[in-house]
Simulated scan of single mutants.
Amino acid sequence: MKINLAAISMAAVLSTSSWAQAPVTSVGGSGSVNDRLAELERAFNARSQAQIDQQRQLNGLQQEVSELRGLLEEQSYRLEQVIERQRAILAAQQDAAQQPAPAPAAPQPSGAQNGGQAQGGASAPAAAPAGNDEQAAYDNAVNLVLQDKDYDAAIPAFARFITQYPQSTYVPNAHYWLGQLLFTQKRFDQAKAQFARVVEAYPGSNKRADSILKLGLIAKEQGDAGLARQYYEQVLREYGNSGAARLAQENLNSL
């Protein structure tokens, strides 16, 4: 999935242009002081409303970019998992091919052969591949976010996945998505716990940089600009060339 950043940038430019054209009535004409003050107040209110509308549009664009980037990262992560599984299968096949052929088994009486099959020998059905339920559970939770947009259902789905599959390679991603959903609902303390879990317990996760960034955004929302600055600077220090670092710099500039 290709993120159309050009279209998003154009939307931001257009919204800025509309803000710049907000009506400003001249207040230097004739009339009483009260009339001129009223004109000035109307001009100020018009410009303030334009600024509010612009900020709302920018916030919406940032949220859309965040979701699209999350989808792209999720697809890349799944592709990496598929490639790793294929490599493991290929390596196992190569090892098996290099093993010497086993010696033929000694003939067994017919009763023994039948008994062996009755006890679940070669005739027993093969076990289902491991991990199918885990993959299905994770895919279901992700699809609730990316396809169905059912965020209320996605929160318990990710929480159940973490509980049921604590050793899964998808657990750090599940913590991140859970934090993202809680952040969207402004449940900042709960979201902070999920992002902090990614940062502290999974140093190699591809969601760690974004999790640090989100901790900074939460600190800003909770009125702690100093802590927010620390998190933004940590992103820049540890992930200087990432998309999260660019967002961290923008938020740092706005403090």
Score class of each variant (00 low, 15 high):
I162Q: 06
D210Q: 07
I89W: 04
K186E: 07
Q94T: 09
R36W: 02
L255F: 15
A128W: 00
E200Y: 06
P100I: 02
K207R: 13
I218P: 01
D53M: 06
H175V: 08
Q230V: 00
T184Y: 06
Q113L: 08
A128R: 07
N206P: 11
G223M: 05
Y202E: 00
Q98S: 03
E73I: 00
G111Y: 10
P104W: 01
E134T: 11
P166G: 07
S15T: 04
S26V: 12
A248I: 07
Q113S: 09
P125M: 07
Q93V: 07
N59D: 05
G131Y: 15
T169M: 13
L181K: 00
L79M: 08
L5D: 10
A136R: 13
A248T: 10
V171S: 12
W177D: 01
T25K: 12
S254W: 13
I155D: 04
A97D: 08
P102Q: 01
D53A: 13
F183A: 08
S211M: 06
P125W: 12
Q81R: 10
E238G: 06
A112I: 08
A244P: 01
K220S: 09
S211V: 04
N253I: 11
T16Y: 07
A248P: 00
Q222P: 10
A159G: 04
D210A: 09
V142K: 05
A118R: 14
E238F: 10
Y231D: 01
E134H: 09
S9W: 12
Y176L: 07
G120M: 14
Q147I: 11
A157D: 02
F183Q: 05
M1Y: 09
Q62P: 00
Q62S: 04
G216L: 00
G121C: 06
R187H: 09
D95C: 02
A112D: 09
N253T: 13
L14H: 07
L68P: 00
Q135A: 15
D152C: 01
R237W: 03
A6N: 02
K192I: 04
Q135T: 15
S110Y: 11
F158L: 11
A128P: 06
Q21A: 15
T163V: 05
T16N: 00
D35M: 06
R36N: 05
A11E: 00
V13W: 08
A92K: 09
A127C: 05
P172I: 14
R229P: 00
Q57K: 05
G29K: 02
I218A: 02
R36K: 11
L61K: 03
E250Q: 14
Y151K: 02
G121H: 10
Y232E: 00
N251R: 14
L5K: 12
F188E: 06
N206W: 13
L182R: 04
P100W: 01
P172M: 12
P166H: 13
Q51L: 15
A154K: 01
T16I: 04
A92F: 02
A127F: 11
H175S: 06
A124S: 06
A50Y: 03
A196T: 13
S9I: 11
A174P: 06
A50W: 02
T163I: 03
L215Y: 02
N59Q: 07
E41V: 08
E84D: 10
I155K: 06
V33T: 08
A97W: 03
R160D: 10
R87N: 13
Q63F: 04
G131A: 12
S76Y: 15
E221H: 07
E41Q: 15
R246G: 05
S30Y: 02
S30A: 14
Q81A: 10
A12I: 09
